[in-house]
Design a protein around this nucleic acid. Structure first.
Lengths: 231, 231
DNA sequence: CCCCTTGGTGTATAATGTACACTTATATAA
DNA sequence: TTATATAAGTGTACATTATACACCAAGGGG
């Protein structure tokens, strides 16, 4: 079976920059897959693939992530659409790029399937990537840094329950700065989007910290009234 | 001549939300074209069209604007890519949407060619638009409002030389607020990206205001050192 | 030459951001 | 059981920034 059109049509793909925080190593990681075919055979690349005709762009992104990395129901946000004529050596390919945030919660290297070779790379030890994926990834990283300051996306990188110190470290790792503990907490208190649970940290060899939860509903409500998240 | 592929391919288009400020009527305007064919015959729509295989996405956007509205060398920024399966009743069409900013400088209704019927609409008197263009336009408007606060995009809507009052009115119109004149000027002074020219307003029946120019180079320089524009 | 319109300017007060250090709780090792 | 190590948790003084506010100047038109 084949499909014929009056004018030439580009192929359309989705590609995802999937980020996670590695709290042990204190750095930001991105998920890459090793290509099993030409071009760029054996090069590392962003997970992604062709958009099917019966699925929306975001559905395509979710499906490709599921197929190539096993990740499901993760935070996805459209980044940019790359359409330079020669970005793929074979033919015209337009790629809708997404950035994705996941919390690893211990399963740091579990995210590989039998089908494809997938691995987490820290951002300062990146291999050279296939196509223009290096550029896509660096623009995605920049976007993440920018967004972190004025949208509560950081919580997508944390487990459901987290401590205030974890949250602070997350910001410090991604933005590569350090915050004063008291001032950081003061700000969060005023933002008023955290729910203090009555649970505390387990299995730590020091005073256990209180666990908090991000109140998505409350945030949406505040946001719709013109409230401006900023950290 | 025709083109055949193994898998079905979507058509790819670009669509542009072109904004301008109408200082007489004190409102924000958007450029629409009247469709000359089905579907949505005679409906108003965003200017746009199919991406050719030998041009990048931004080139396609510029070309379509030139062809349909006569506008050349204007500010263009990618907005979002819309790819819902049924957004075009005929077949699968993926549209890369752009928002564009122009300064009219008097030529308010000149922007129509013989080929297509084009007109400026104020945002609160919009007709119902073809396809999902209503949604695209409202998301573009939201993006413009957001961006205005932390990027110096407002200058794209002004002539090369402008008065501080014009700049202030521009912000007030788009953000639908009002600013204190002295505080507004104080902020601009601290941003330090305006060049005071030695020219003044002509043909006004009151004291003539000094004309300023936006210093793009200086802004780029400051931005690269981590400076943060905010108004 | 008077009036109308817009241009242009400073200061006092409130609100917000920043810098900074000690006590508390818990697990582990002596 | 006691000592030690580690991170948790908490308030205040000072600096910086944002806000509110009113009058004189300049120029054109009647």
């Amino acid at each position: 079976m084949s499909f014929t059109y009056k004018y030439a049509r580009p192929a359309v793909t989705v590609d995802c920059a999937v980020f996670a925080i590695d709290f042990e190593k204190e750095n930001l990681k991105v998920l890459l897959i090793r290509r099993g075919e030409e071009p760029f055979l054996n090069h590392w690349a962003l997970p992604g693939g062709f958009v099917h005709t019966d699925e929306s762009l975001i559905e395509a992104a979710h499906r490709e992530l599921q197929e190539e990395t096993g990740l499901t129901s993760i935070y996805l946000e459209q980044l940019y659409t790359y359409g330079n004529v020669d970005r793929d050596p074979r033919e015209r390919v337009i790629s809708v790029a997404w950035f994705a945030l996941v919390n690893l919660e211990g399963r740091l290297l579990e995210a590989r399937t039998d089908a494809v070779d997938a691995a987490w790379f820290s951002l300062d030890e990146l291999p050279s990537l296939a196509f223009d994926h290096g550029r896509i990834l660096s623009e995605a990283t920049e976007r993440l840094r920018g967004k972190l300051k004025y949208k509560p996306v950081g919580f997508e990188l944390l487990p459901e329950l987290f401590t205030l110190s974890q949250l602070q470290r997350l910001y410090e790792i991604i933005l590569d700065t350090s915050f004063d503990k008291r001032n950081f907490r003061k700000k969060l208190q005023k933002l008023d989007v955290l729910i203090e649970t009555d649970e505390i940290q387990k299995d730590v060899s020091h005073r256990a910290a209180r666990l908090y939860r991000f109140d998505r509903d409350k945030y949406r409500d505040l946001e719709s009234r013109g409230f401006y998240f900023e950290l």
